[in-house]
Design a protein around this nucleic acid. Sequence first.
DNA 1: GCGACAG
DNA 2: ATCTTGTCGC
Length: 224
Amino acid sequence: MKYPIKHITPKTAIEQQVEIARQLITSGMPEKIEIVAGVDMAYSQKPLTGFSAISLFTYPNLQYIKTYQEIDLIGYPYIPGLLSFREGPLIMDTLEKVEEDIDLFLFDGQGIAHPRGVGIASHLGFLLDKPSIGVGKTWLTGEYKEPGRQKGNKSDLLDASGNLIGHVLRTRSETNPVFVSPGHRIGIEEASEIVLNCTTSYRIPEPLRRADQKAEKYKNEGDI
DNA sequence: GCGACAG
DNA sequence: ATCTTGTCGC
């Protein structure tokens, strides 16, 4: 493992991010997308425990396939900019149980729309060498103008130098937009297109919405 | 030093 | 993320 993700000090984590950032591919459309996965986590306090959920859906028909889950103690603190070092370990463990060939990942959080250009979607997409997209529910970095109020409307998310790093996308009319940015092996325009294709009548794309529900239920009801 | 800060 | 009561609107 050239870039270990477990037990990494913040200093080393940042060094890894800088190195990974220049290797990310942020253009193009995956040649094949048949299975899309939504990845999310829920937590319970004392002792801080994480519950992961990876929900698989067919694409573009969005038929639910199944969900893989895992549980473990969380030792890493939440540090803005280093989210993937907190959630990544459990997510990677969960992925080891997956038998299907996932073509694209949707992560709850940012892709390249990150202080060093390596949000959780970029980091994990890079480690997996798979197409990935970051779908954040709130802002982390970048400047933008409020997009139109109707579903499908979007505006550019720019970094301090004015470079395009993602889109602020309205996935549901009259509702707060989501922050979409490429994780790895996909372009910005392509990422927004796929997020919209994965969205039905709710603000959050189906794979992520289902993973969120599954993680929450796992936290409250366990394996039962 | 001050303000900002995904989940 | 989690905690936590009521409230608004389809």
